[in-house]
Design a protein around this nucleic acid. Structure first.
Length: 417
RNA sequence: GCGAUCAUAGCUCAGUUGGUUAGAGCGCCGGUUUGUGGUACCGGAGGUCACGGGUUCGAACCCCGUUGGUCGCCCCA
């Protein structure tokens, strides 16, 4: 019997008005830029078999162990709403024989789902733009991908965000570094924060970017990845950085930048607002606006042949916050029926104007005397007002824009014949 | 998963130490005024004070719980 309106699901958003304009601006700019770099558009399913994410992200990661929206379908199969793009794209690469297109550059965007506590810049259904290069093991692919990200941010008008870059080395380098970190931190385990003591077992790399003051004294002297890099890994990173310099992409080395997901190798990066900047303030405690890296190990975890790949993703909501308010555009023409006798002529007129490609609002209802005022208030570039005069419906034009005014006068003249 | 804080009209917010029919501005609808125009005035609609309990003669106000928002932690885009 309750007539109560159901509430929206926690952490979802109904985006409207200036916010929706900013969101659309981000997506449109991304679509334009990815064409410049010749990334091909792909559309991906919103859900996959649970194992697609469990196997590629790693069972122990937070995303898989406690943040996925998983459910059994009517056939009893466990499915999951995608918490990220990369795993699904990798699955599609393997199941559709896209190896034949390698190196394959693809881009997509859409909703992702993560069961997390919502806060500023963080939602349970959120949206990302995403770019991947699959089947390209050379550092030039990393450079191109990062150059695209950098250009995208500039075209969005975001200038106070900088590329933070690191390398995790190849599989051997990464393992050796990890072992050294565990040795180093285990020696001072009692003095670390509770969180970092836990991370020591689960994900020791994460201790490096701890914000806890108890951990900070030990971070500076912690083993550095550079000491463990193989010759190949060093050369790879050097090729990436020199390529970025040649491309004119500004970057800073971030030795403590790591990735949470298991499949990353070599290049890891995040675009982060500069300290004290307007963008940093706009984002609150969420610092990363675009992040990614190289994931040469992923295809194997999904049962495919070893396939090198790089990619990044960026939160559309976060980018939209940095883009700021974007006003909804005003109509070219507001059509007014100043009395009910001119109604049908006004309806016909708006169809004619829209067919000519002019955006058009109509004011046909409510108090006839107030319709013109509403049209004025709407901020339309021009007003075309119809009124019954001496038994004939006639239109009057009011326009700030002279050319548009003349066009409307001609239109009115032709249609009144 | 943990912590802090908030929830009154469509929106932004008042509402005194608990005390009659819960208010304003904006917006919306109607009327009058103006009359190539965004004005002014008058009127109207719209609220089980987030929801559920409790204390009290009496609760928007005090207590408990739930839901949701916001901001941190964890983690991440």
């Amino acid at each position: 019997m309750s007539r109560k309106t159901p509430q929206a699901i926690r952490g979802t958003q109904d985006i409207f008005g200036a916010d929706a304009e900013a969101f659309a601006f981000v997506v449109e700019t991304f679509e334009r830029v990815r064409r410049l770099y010749r990334f091909r558009r792909v559309e991906m399913p919103v859900f996959e078999k649970t194992e697609v994410f469990a196997r590629s992200l790693g069972e122990t990661t937070d995303v898989v162990s406690k943040e996925m929206y998983s459910f059994d379908d009517r056939g009893g199969e466990s499915l999951t709403l995608r918490p990220e793009f990369t795993a699904g794209i990798a699955r599609a690469f393997l199941t559709n024989g896209w190896q034949q297109y390698a190196p394959l550059k693809v881009a997509t965007h859409g909703p992702l789902f993560r069961y997390e506590r919502p806060q500023k810049g963080r939602y349970r259904q959120f949206h990302q733009i995403d770019a991947e290069v699959i089947g390209a093991g050379e550092p030039q692919a990393d450079v191109e991908l990062l150059a695209m990200a950098d250009q995208l941010l500039r075209e969005l008008g975001i200038h106070d965000v900088t590329l933070h870059l690191n390398t995790l080395g190849d599989a051997e380098s990464r393992e050796a570094w990890r072992a050294a970190l565990i040795d180093y931190f285990r020696a001072v385990k009692d003095q670390l924060s509770e969180e970092s003591q836990e991370r020591l077992e689960k994900n020791p790399l994460r201790i490096l970017d701890s914000k806890d003051p108890r951990d900070k004294p030990f971070l500076a002297d912690a083993p550095k990845i550079d000491a463990f890099l193989s010759e190949e890994a060093s050369a790879f990173f050097a090729a990436v950085t020199s390529g970025l310099d040649a491309a004119g992409v500004k970057w800073v080395r971030a030795e403590s930048l790591v990735r949470g997901l298991d499949y990353y190798r070599h290049t890891a990066f995040e675009f982060i607002p500069d300290e004290g900047s307007a963008s940093a303030a706009a984002l609150g405690s969420q610092s990363t606006v675009l992040g990614g890296g190289r994931y040469d190990g992923l295809m194997e975890s999904l049962g495919g042949a070893p396939t090198p790949a790089v990619g990044w993703a960026a939160g559309i909501e976060r980018l939209a916050m940095l883009v700021g308010e974007r006003a909804e555009p005003k109509a070219d023409v507001a059509i007014v029926a100043e009395d009910d006798a001119s109604m049908l002529v006004a309806i016909a007129a708006q169809m004619g104007l829209r067919a000519k490609g002019l955006t058009c609002d109509a004011f046909l209802s409510g108090s006839p005397r107030k319709r013109f005022d509403k049209a004025v208030k709407s901020g339309a570039k021009a007003i075309l007002a119809y009124q019954m005069v001496d038994g004939k419906v006639t239109g009057r034009v009011k326009s700030e824009d002279e050319a548009l005014g003349i066009q409307l006068l001609q239109f009115e003249h032709q249609t009144s014949l």
